[in-house]
């Protein structure tokens, strides 16, 4: 079980941002969603989280249709996300950012046995101790992304959507990040990852979906995608160096 997107189409006026796309993100797996800029990846995230109503199609979470639910109810069903353009609570400190999310979760699960992770453990786990009391809008982008991840994890999600989490991060941050990502997936969370850093994608993802101009180009394991001629042609152009990059490490 996990997240399922069925035949989703989104049109903005005459422009088709997503054309009849279906995908699945299974619990305990990291599913990659890749494609050039403008392929519709962020739109797909907005559809899944309910920020963008689709023209057609449905979204199910653990077998239950959540297409009609507003964003906050989807979040309460266990969906969390980060944003490509950071959506931090700029006037709150890093700790308060995480605390808002954690307390939101605790209020709904007061008696439940699955108490959410505390703010302090998350601060520590994501290496934010040094900046815990800094206002969030003062952070560099890389750390800002870590705060968004911490905030998402504070909701104890069953499905986690990450929108270009590694852009703006240095190598050390990316390494720490991919470690956390693996741990999260091993806890049974379905992770859906949009990312341009191919090294990261290829090293952590269990399955990949490739989008291009709103159409699904390919789907499969990392090896299958790397070998797929259509992906090579559309996503990377046909030059050999680029193909190297894809198959790279």
């Amino acid at each position: 079980m996990g997240l399922e997107v069925n035949d989703v189409t989104v049109r903005f006026g005459g422009h088709t941002a997503l054309d009849n796309i279906s995908l699945r993100a299974l619990n305990g797996q990291i599913t990659g969603l890749i494609g050039p800029n403008g392929a519709g990846k962020t739109t797909m995230f907005n559809v899944i989280t309910g920020l963008q109503p689709p023209t057609r199609g449905s979204v199910t979470l653990d077998g239950r249709d959540i297409s009609k639910l507003p964003p906050y109810r989807r979040a309460r069903r266990g969906m969390a996300r980060t944003f490509q353009r950071l959506e931090l609570f700029g006037s709150l400190s890093v700790r308060e950012n995480i605390h808002v999310a954690a307390s939101e979760f605790r209020r709904r699960h007061r008696s439940a046995e699955r108490a959410g992770p505390t703010t302090e453990t998350l601060v520590e786990r994501l290496g934010l101790t040094a900046v815990a009391d800094v206002r969030a809008d003062q952070l560099p982008t890389g750390q800002g992304r870590m705060v968004e991840l911490a905030r998402a994890l504070a909701c104890r999600p069953r499905v986690l959507l990450l929108d270009e989490p590694a852009s703006g991060q240095d190598e050390a941050e990316t390494a720490a990040f991919s470690r956390v990502l693996r741990e999260v997936a091993d806890d049974g969370v379905a992770v859906l990852l949009v990312e341009h850093d191919m090294d990261l994608v290829m090293s952590v993802c269990d399955e990949l979906h490739v989008l291009d101009f709103g159409k699904k180009l390919a789907q499969g394991t990392c090896d299958q995608i790397q070998a797929d001629p259509a992906v090579r042609a559309a996503y990377l152009g046909e030059s050999d160096e680029d193909t190297e990059a894809l198959g790279g490490s």
């Binding site: 920020l51 609570f89 308060e96 939101e104 979760f105 909701c155």
Partner: peptide
């Protein structure tokens, strides 16, 4: 804190379940 969060980013608030 919730009020400030709401002012800063309504979208993020919603995706956190608020």
């Amino acid at each position: 804190k919730r009020l400030l969060a709401l002012k800063d980013s309504p979208a993020a608030c919603a995706t956190l379940g608020m």
